[in-house]
């Protein structure tokens, strides 16, 4: 969004003797090609795919290491036809849904508590902040040991991934609520729970949405880690399977599916947040 805004700024200032030439030229080119701004983002990936396809077809890229996009597409189609694809996707999405819900909820509850009670924050926040610095992969053996190799360890790991961004963003959102708005609440004799419910939480809502989005991003990261570590189903398992059977097209197919689903879920949250924050151009 900001990039679009910047590109709209005319370049007149720097070249007073040749006003608007660059801008005018660019306008003409764009008009001629009739490319809307949003379509510009597609140019690079689409032409990249075309070049990739071409290089693979003429044999520059090794077929067993870097198969053509069309081969990957037909691999995905085969998986879909045999029904395998839906099984793997279904279980991955289920893990994401459960883990994310669990982790994000825990983050919300803890942030609301530590954000509201200074004593609790002093007790807990340094500890949580220090846990945050542990690399995600370091948890894997521990989770396997504690929760076994079944679903619970995977969901636990995803929950952990979703927890931190949610907690950190919401807490800082709560702590940064404008004192001036809190004072308005005090004028109307709000205190304790009422003040939290009617002023602090609504004011921290934009931070909550940011936490939601980055939590979801990390959930996708952690599901890959969890499924690579040990699973018999799921998109992550599909990647390991492709690697062990030497089929690059399967690995690449899973990578693409991850990209598509990750982007899709993020787009859903983004759309929701746009609707939620529609009236929240914070100016007053």
């Amino acid at each position: 969004m900001s990039v679009e805004q910047i590109s709209e700024i005319p370049v007149v200032v720097d070249m007073p003797d040749r006003p608007n030439r660059g801008e005018a030229l660019r306008g003409v080119v764009r008009q001629a090609l009739r490319i809307p701004d949003r379509a510009l983002g597609w140019i690079v990936p689409v032409s990249g795919l075309l070049v990739w396809e071409f290089l693979a077809r003429i044999g520059v890229l090794p077929p067993n290491g870097m198969p053509a996009p069309s081969v990957i597409a037909s691999t995905i189609a085969d998986l879909a036809r045999s029904g395998e694809l839906w099984q793997h996707m279904g279980i991955t999405l289920l893990r994401i849904a459960l883990g994310f819900t669990l982790g994000a909820s825990a983050g919300i509850v803890l942030a609301a508590l530590t954000g509201s009670f200074p004593l609790l924050r002093k007790l807990l926040d340094p500890f949580v902040q220090s846990l945050r610095n542990i690399p995600s992969m370091a948890w894997v053996p521990l989770f396997l040991l504690w929760l076994g190799i079944q679903e619970s360890s995977k969901i636990g790991l995803i929950a952990l991934g979703a927890f931190f961004p949610m907690y950190l963003n919401l807490l800082s959102g709560i702590l940064n609520v404008d004192r001036k708005l809190v004072e308005v609440g005090l004028i109307y004799r709000l205190s304790g729970f009422q003040l939290i419910r009617r002023v602090i939480l609504p004011a921290a809502f934009p931070a909550f949405v940011v936490g939601l989005r980055s939590g979801l991003g990390l959930a996708w990261m952690f599901v890959v880690a969890a499924e690579i570590m040990g699973a018999s189903k799921g998109l992550g398992f599909l990647m390991v399977d492709g690697q062990q059977t030497g089929r690059a097209s399967i690995i690449l197919a899973s990578v693409m599916l991850f990209a598509v689903f990750g982007k899709a879920t993020d787009a859903i949250v983004q759309l929701l947040s746009k609707r939620w924050l529609r009236n929240r151009t914070e100016a007053a």
Binding site: I187, R189, V199, A203, N279, R280, A284
Partner: peptide, 19 residues
């Protein structure tokens, strides 16, 4: 002893709740 509805307060900024 504290704020109350018997006194209304207008700040320098409107301080409206944006939501």
């Amino acid at each position: 002893t504290g704020p109350g509805l018997d006194r209304g307060y207008v700040f320098q900024e409107p301080r409206l709740f944006p939501w």
